[in-house]
Amino acid sequence: MDALDLKPLGTLPDANGAVLVELLHNPACKLLYVRWFGNLTGREVVYVARESLKLQENMHFALLLNDKTNATGDWSETLEWLEYEWLPQIMAGGLRAIAYVFSPDMHNQLASLEFFERVRQYLPIQLFHDTPSAWQWIRRQPPPLRATVSEEPAL
């Protein structure tokens, strides 16, 4: 993953204080990389999704690499919220493609497959079993649009 040239943005904890996600980004590619950990619940997925909306307001990332390699759990109760609340907002902020790395956990995979089916009607999304393949695909997406003056972060 060194080829991604990722810069850390921080982590978000779960209810017990353990790392739930690690957030990294590549400003040149306008990529947000979200690496998940632990047994996920719907509440935790919504929490991270809301935090990603806050990041999107300032960063306007175009590409999302969502890596659930180290996660388990069934979060399917959040699928409608993700499709009808989160997705329109994140797309309005500039998201235009998602590379999605499967968890090895079957319950998580079932929720991920349903998420994939819901999202693919709105924007390009691809499922992967490993992060290098996901990176290869996401970097072939069209280059991000140049930021306008209003989109550039204030110093």
Rank of each mutant, 00 (worst) to 15 (best):
V19Q: 15
R120K: 15
N16S: 15
V46R: 14
V48C: 13
E114K: 06
Q136V: 00
G17A: 09
A111Y: 14
D105I: 03
Y122P: 06
L32A: 14
F61A: 04
V34W: 09
V21W: 06
A97T: 02
I125E: 02
N58A: 14
L40V: 14
R120H: 12
I125D: 02
D14T: 12
G94M: 06
R96F: 01
G94Y: 04
V21T: 14
T41N: 07
L65M: 08
A147Y: 04
M59I: 09
L95V: 08
L6A: 02
N58R: 12
L4N: 00
L24F: 05
K7T: 05
Q109R: 15
F61K: 05
F102H: 15
W36F: 09
D2Q: 02
P104F: 10
L87R: 11
D74L: 08
L53W: 03
N39H: 12
N26P: 03
L31V: 04
D105A: 04
Y84H: 15
T72S: 11
A111G: 15
K68Y: 12
E85W: 14
L63E: 01
E77Q: 12
W81M: 06
P153R: 10
L63N: 03
Y33M: 06
G10H: 07
D74Q: 07
L123P: 10
F37T: 04
T78G: 12
L4M: 06
P144G: 12
L53M: 05
L23D: 08
E57A: 11
V45S: 08
I98M: 04
G94E: 06
K54Y: 03
F61V: 04
R96D: 00
